[in-house]
């Protein structure tokens, strides 16, 4: 179990989760400190997004502890959970923008709902964030008129509009070309340096992970197999990490008889 440190913005200890009888996450222990960029990596189905949902309080934990910005997530009532969520930002994989609202309305939404700022200030803050994301001029466009990269950047603009202390970014580079993906990586670094944010990025993109991460957590089949800085990950002798770094497909040694038996079994 990792040490509890008061400077940590996130502490997860002994988290176990189930879906029905199937165990999804096993003994997850994870710390993220202030101004750190932590990348959670793993192949599809390794439990990255599930872990994110538990950290955000979108799913309730029955075992283990999740402490987010010094609050124990599972013990918060709805009102306190919302209070905590005003201090974090979440950028979803597909942007999760509301299709019936313009880009500006989408980005302004948290300010309208959670603050009592006047319209003018809200407009200025929105323009600032749009400029930071290089989305100036898209204010009046509908989400359906944006490209994949623009959707992600608009989602990111909405996630940081309240200047959160901690930002979560789910799969920033999924489905993007290398240039747009590199641009998003630069944005993430810029956000940490300019706005002093701690950032947790969930990805399976190696290049992006090694570019932005201070530390990397590698998940496999719902278990953390390693947490370390980029150098430690690269030096790891764990076969699963080597496979991942060398982009080697996971192959099973197939017993021909057993294989045939399984296929022909009633």
């Amino acid at each position: 179990m990792e040490d509890i440190n008061p400077k940590n913005v996130l502490e997860v200890s002994n988290l176990n989760t189930w879906y029905g009888n199937k165990k999804i996450l096993s003994d997850i222990n994870l710390n993220v400190s202030h101004k750190e960029i932590m990348v959670i990596m793993g192949h599809s189905g390794s439990g990255k997004s599930t872990l994110l949902r538990y950290i955000l309080g979108l799913e309730k934990t029955k075992t283990g502890l999740i402490r987010l910005l010094d609050k124990e997530v599972s013990k918060l009532n709805k009102k306190d959970l919302y209070k905590l969520r005003k201090r974090i930002g979440v950028a979803f994989q597909n942007g999760a923008l509301f299709s019936s609202m313009t880009v500006r309305e989408n980005i302004e939404l948290p300010l309208h709902e959670n603050t009592e700022l006047d319209e003018k200030t809200i407009h200025i803050m929105t323009r600032l964030k749009l400029e930071l994301m290089q989305l100036s001029g898209t204010e009046s466009l509908m989400p359906s008129e944006l490209s994949g990269g623009m959707l992600k950047r608009a989602g990111l603009a909405r996630a940081v509009i309240m200047d959160p202390e901690l930002l979560f970014f789910d799969e920033p580079s999924a489905g993007l070309d290398p240039i747009t993906s590199a641009h998003l990586d630069n944005l993430i670094l810029q956000l940490r340096d300019a706005l002093n944010m701690s950032i947790i990025v969930v990805t399976h993109d190696l290049e992006s992970a090694f570019k932005i991460a201070d530390r990397i957590t590698v998940l496999d089949k719902g278990k953390i197999i390693m947490v370390g800085d980029k150098g430690a990950i690269k030096k790891s002798r764990d076969a699963r990490i080597i496979n991942m770094l060398e982009r080697r497909a996971i192959t099973n040694n197939i017993d021909a008889d057993d294989y045939l038996n399984r296929l022909t079994r009633n």
Binding site: R53, L56, L58, K78, Y82, K83, R85, K86, I88, G89, V90, F92, Q93, N94, A96, L97, F98, L109, P110, E113, N114, R158
Partner: peptide
């Protein structure tokens, strides 16, 4: 569709009921 496109989760994460 809002549910499958994570828009409802996004509302929750923005502290909007």
């Amino acid at each position: 569709i809002m549910r499958i496109e994570n828009q409802i989760d996004a509302l929750e994460c923005m502290a909007i009921d």
